[in-house]
């Protein structure tokens, strides 16, 4: 460990010294003004249309839901694909309603599993035994059709990544026009969580002969549940 440290600090010192010698006379008070492009403001409807259009172009499925129909919509999609298991977080806003819906006696036999285990000792549970997942989202970006996740102990980083089918709930009241606006309005520069993930469709690649294929490593399908007429405004 001590050798790593001494070598490290040696290289560090030499690199910084070389760089500093070159900018010693720089006047940081006189930097040129940086222009920025003024994007025309988007109405709520236009933003919603753009968001949906981008996601669909990127092969995601967008389904409009209300707070009451979320479990039903998920169930319908799962049944359509012959999937009988769903994994989700524990404490999210709609986790409770999923739990009570899927545990009712006349359900379609869909098993709801909670991501309440450390991944390193339970990799199979996520890699081999979880065909579909559900996460909430923090907010979304209209311009690029992007969903913003702040993974947490409740909805871990891999919940949106490993299962081949990912349902994500997007509350349209938390939609912003573009990424730059989001950083400013939420003051992300002040403090960021351990991991932030921006998702704009299912996993894909064009690495073989420029031919698009979905499900390279992450989800093959992304189903966006668009909560539009949410009356429950907090």
């Amino acid at each position: 460990m001590s050798t790593i440290h001494s070598e490290r600090s040696g290289a560090r010192g030499r690199i910084l010294e070389k760089l500093k010698a070159q900018v010693a006379g720089a006047d940081y008070g006189k930097l040129p003004a940086e222009p920025s492009y003024a994007y025309p403001p988007m109405s709520r409807d236009a933003a919603l249309a753009r968001f949906t259009e981008c996601l669909q172009a990127n092969h995601a499925e967008v389904i409009e839901v209300s707070a009451e129909t979320i479990p039903l919509a998920i169930e319908r999609e799962l049944v359509k694909r012959n999937i009988s298991k769903l994994i989700c977080g524990q404490k999210g806003k709609f986790s409770g309603s999923l739990e009570s819906y899927f545990s009712r006696s006349d359900s379609e036999g869909i098993e709801l599993v909670k991501y309440d285990f450390p991944l390193s000792d339970n990799k199979s549970r996520l890699f081999d035994e979880a065909p579909a997942s559900f996460t909430h989202s923090r907010c979304s970006i209209a311009a690029t059709g992007t969903i913003v996740l702040w993974p947490s102990e409740d909805e871990p980083r891999t919940l949106s990544l490993v299962p081949p089918l990912h349902f994500v709930l997007v509350d349209t009241h938390k939609m912003v026009s573009d990424f730059a606006t989001l950083l400013k309005s939420e003051h992300w520069g002040a403090e960021l969580p351990a991991n932030v993930l921006l998702i704009s469709g299912p996993s894909k690649t064009a690495d073989i002969q420029q031919t698009l294929a979905y499900g390279a490593h992450g989800p093959k399908e992304l189903v966006v549940l668009l909560l539009n007429n949410n009356t429950d405004k907090e």
Partner: peptide
């Protein structure tokens, strides 16, 4: 592409209580 499928921002290692990372 207007944006890639994933944009991943890593600020900290696994935090207490986190199940992965």
């Amino acid at each position: 592409q207007a944006i890639t499928t994933y944009f991943n921002m890593i600020t900290k290692p696994r935090q207490p209580g986190e199940k992965d990372g």
